[in-house]
Amino acid sequence: MTEGENRPARVAANAIAGGHFRYYDFVMAAFVAIILLSNVLGAGKFAQVWLPVWNVYWPFGAGILFFPISYVIGDVLTEVYGYARARRVIWVGTVAVLFMAFMSWVVVKLPPAADWKNQPAYEAIFGQVPRIVFASVCAFWAGEFVNSYVLARMKLWTGGKMLWTRTIGSTIFGEGVDSLIFYPLAFLPIPFLGWEGWPVSLVIQVLFTQWALKVAWEVILTPVTYVVVGFLKRREGVDVFDTDTDFTPFATRV
């Protein structure tokens, strides 16, 4: 490989609109897989961890183990391929989550065979509460777009330097929007709709705890982000800057 091939070219996003990338599809697939897993595996279980300093068990949603990885992948997408391509992936993820939620509802509602005794367990795991699904989709969609937008803007402000500032900074805002939308929508009591929900104090506590843990994940995974971003930029041969990008989220064009 020549020296020129090792050095990614700094280009505007609209300058490579028709370009073909070797790894873009793989990154998209990883992003969608994480989103679907977080809604299937993570959303259905609350776990706990022992905190010896405080001598207590601390409960947490199991999705915290891997859902923040979607924001890391979102950072990689925007940093390497630009906002427009990240936007397309976010829309793919949104449609995939909606389809999964719909098919989960359909399959749960199918009448079980007379000799199949696992319907209650199946409903407990895969039964979708419409309010939770709606909150999850809204929070994911808004949070991911805020994350991508902030990173793309910060990349211009920093001239492509100090990657850690924009990966962590974008996650602070993106996960903040995600948490501010999801937990109130999903769990606050709404008396006129007959939704009891959680106590307001608990919603606030969980909101800030989950946000802090998700941002902490981003910080911990920063060295991994550097490795992945560096690899992709070298292999794809580009370093995209969104100088003339239309930042509307309501499009899928590149």
Score class of each variant (00 low, 15 high):
30 A>C: 14
178 D>W: 09
43 A>P: 05
179 S>I: 12
102 F>Y: 11
183 Y>S: 04
7 R>H: 11
168 I>T: 09
19 G>A: 14
218 E>M: 15
53 V>A: 11
78 T>E: 00
51 L>Y: 11
4 G>T: 13
180 L>S: 12
220 I>D: 06
18 G>D: 12
203 V>S: 10
214 K>A: 14
127 G>S: 00
111 P>H: 06
97 V>W: 01
53 V>F: 12
77 L>G: 13
48 Q>D: 15
169 G>C: 10
248 T>F: 02
126 F>T: 03
28 M>N: 06
158 T>W: 07
238 V>Y: 02
63 G>S: 06
99 F>Q: 06
185 L>T: 07
160 G>W: 08
250 F>E: 05
78 T>K: 01
160 G>V: 03
239 D>R: 01
32 V>G: 00
2 T>C: 08
69 I>E: 00
171 T>C: 09
63 G>K: 06
223 P>K: 09
215 V>R: 02
120 P>V: 08
200 V>G: 05
4 G>K: 10
222 T>G: 02
107 V>I: 14
176 G>V: 06
127 G>A: 01
146 V>D: 04
51 L>C: 04
168 I>N: 09
62 A>D: 02
48 Q>F: 15
121 A>R: 03
184 P>G: 09
141 W>H: 07
21 F>P: 02
100 M>F: 03
89 V>A: 05
133 V>H: 09
174 G>E: 11
246 D>V: 04
171 T>N: 10
197 G>I: 14
253 R>D: 00
53 V>H: 08
26 F>N: 04
22 R>D: 06
97 V>F: 05
180 L>C: 13
28 M>E: 01
238 V>E: 03
39 N>M: 08
100 M>E: 10
199 P>A: 14
6 N>M: 14
167 T>A: 11
71 Y>K: 03
146 V>H: 03
118 N>M: 15
158 T>M: 11
107 V>F: 11
63 G>C: 04
162 M>G: 05
146 V>Q: 02
44 G>L: 11
212 A>P: 02
196 E>I: 13
61 G>Q: 13
196 E>G: 07
1 M>A: 09
43 A>M: 04
130 P>L: 02
75 D>R: 02
78 T>N: 00
105 W>F: 09
91 W>H: 03
196 E>R: 12
114 A>E: 13
90 I>P: 01
60 F>G: 14
44 G>D: 08
222 T>D: 12
218 E>P: 11
131 R>H: 07
133 V>L: 10
171 T>P: 02
154 M>R: 12
62 A>T: 13
88 R>Y: 00
130 P>W: 01
148 S>Q: 06
9 A>C: 03
70 S>V: 15
173 F>C: 15
79 E>W: 08
183 Y>Q: 10
7 R>V: 15
75 D>I: 01
149 Y>I: 13
113 A>M: 09
72 V>K: 00
191 P>N: 10
196 E>T: 14
122 Y>N: 03
116 W>E: 10
19 G>C: 04
26 F>P: 00
56 V>N: 03
45 K>W: 12
31 F>V: 09
162 M>T: 08
107 V>R: 00
177 V>K: 00
212 A>D: 01
175 E>F: 12
204 I>A: 15
167 T>V: 15
189 P>F: 09
194 G>I: 13
49 V>C: 06
71 Y>L: 09
172 I>H: 01
45 K>M: 07
178 D>L: 12
4 G>L: 12
61 G>R: 05
55 N>Q: 15
